[in-house]
Write a protein that binds this DNA or RNA. Structure first.
Length: 302
RNA sequence: GGUGCCAUAGCUCAGUUGGUAGAGCAACGGACUGAAAAUCCGUGUGUCCCUGGUUCGAUUCCAGGUGGCACCA
């Protein structure tokens, strides 16, 4: 029996949760979240986790399952998700995976290269060097250690250069030698559903959702994690802006405005990524019946 | 009703001694392998309110109209 992973994705605030729940109910299965921020148990208002009623109505995985203090990343997500899917597919022929974290979805569909975990101390040293001496020195070092990657990397992007150097320095081998892009074989077929709508409408949905988050107490939630603001997990829209407010840098009004703007930009970035995915099948979020019909057809053909 | 001021990008505004225009914000496009809600790169998107006039040429000058604001009635 062929196993099917139904992926429901799209930009933030498009309405993935509802479509995913209805789809999972229809196929009588469970939901695996692919959301790099809903995974943190300390966050919920600003990450728009499903409501308690929604969570009770169907089993969700990777929602508030980890801590902001865990050093989480796409690779860990890949291995944990693959382990979970193996279990779920013993029980179900179809599983729904939903979320907007592009890299996490790709990690499940195609896999991610195997590399050693980064030593936090090394990362800190490189970041310090970047801050004190600029990017030139790091570029020069990368050119020595991995000329192949140096020639293809975006030399203006410090995050890329730092990570490549981390791997070079930790392993004594060029970073590019790990980048084999294997496109791992998966024991299931993938059906990708992308949700999109008119841009003006999407912006309205985003703005309204941010207003609701504010009403629901996002400020207090942000304040509760303010002591940990340096964590990567909190370099997140909705929190970083409040941290600036708590620092006295911006007004509350400006904070809300920036959360809206940054959410809109995030949505655009997601769409840029999903657009180039030729496997994506696009629907409007209200086309639930069409979506389920489409999935049924796909499954029956295979 | 009268007088004055204003009308340029989605918004706030600059500017063109007459040769079809540019800042900030917003927006839009793209890259992407252990930070991915991250990180980085790129792009002015315009009936210069409308209709005439003067002019080789008008967004710019002139007249009228329309809309807005202010003051006077």
């Amino acid at each position: 029996m062929t196993k099917h992973l139904i992926i429901i994705t799209g930009p933030t605030a498009i309405g993935k949760t509802r479509v995913a729940i209805e789809t999972a109910k229809f196929f009588n299965t469970e939901i695996v979240s692919a959301d790099s921020r809903q995974i943190y148990r300390e966050l919920s208002i600003g990450t728009a986790v499903p409501s308690q009623a929604e969570l009770n109505s169907i089993t969700h995985h990777f929602i508030r399952s980890h801590s902001i203090h865990d050093a989480y990343n796409a690779s860990r997500y890949e291995s944990e998700a693959m382990e979970l899917l193996e279990k779920l597919f013993r029980k179900y022929n179809t599983v729904v995976l939903t979320g907007g974290s592009m890299l996490y979805i790709d990690a499940v569909c195609k896999g991610i290269d195997i590399m050693p975990d980064v030593d936090p101390e090394l990362r800190q040293n490189l970041k310090t060097s970047l801050k004190e001496n600029g990017i030139e020195g790091l570029r020069f070092q990368l050119k020595q250690l991995d000329p192949a990657y140096y020639n293809q990397v975006d030399l203006k992007n410090p995050a890329r250069i730092v990570h490549a150097l981390e791997i070079c320095l930790m392993t004594g081998k060029p970073y590019s030698s790990f980048r084999t892009s294997p496109s791992k074989e998966r024991p299931f077929s993938v059906i990708k559903i992308g949700l999109d709508c008119d841009r003006v409408e999407l912006h309205q949905r985003i703005n309204q959702r941010v207003d609701k988050m504010i009403e629901a107490g996002l400020e207090e939630e942000a304040r509760s994690v303010y002591p940990f603001k340096h964590l990567n997990s909190l370099n997140t829209v909705g929190y970083r802006e409040f941290f600036a407010h708590f620092n006295g840098e911006i007004s509350k009004e400006k904070t809300i405005e920036l959360i809206k703007r940054n959410s809109r930009r995030y949505a655009r970035k997601q769409l840029t990524w999903f657009r180039k995915d030729s496997e994506m099948n696009w629907f409007q979020p209200h086309d639930l019946e069409k979506i389920i019909k489409f999935i049924k057809n796909k499954i029956e053909k295979k």
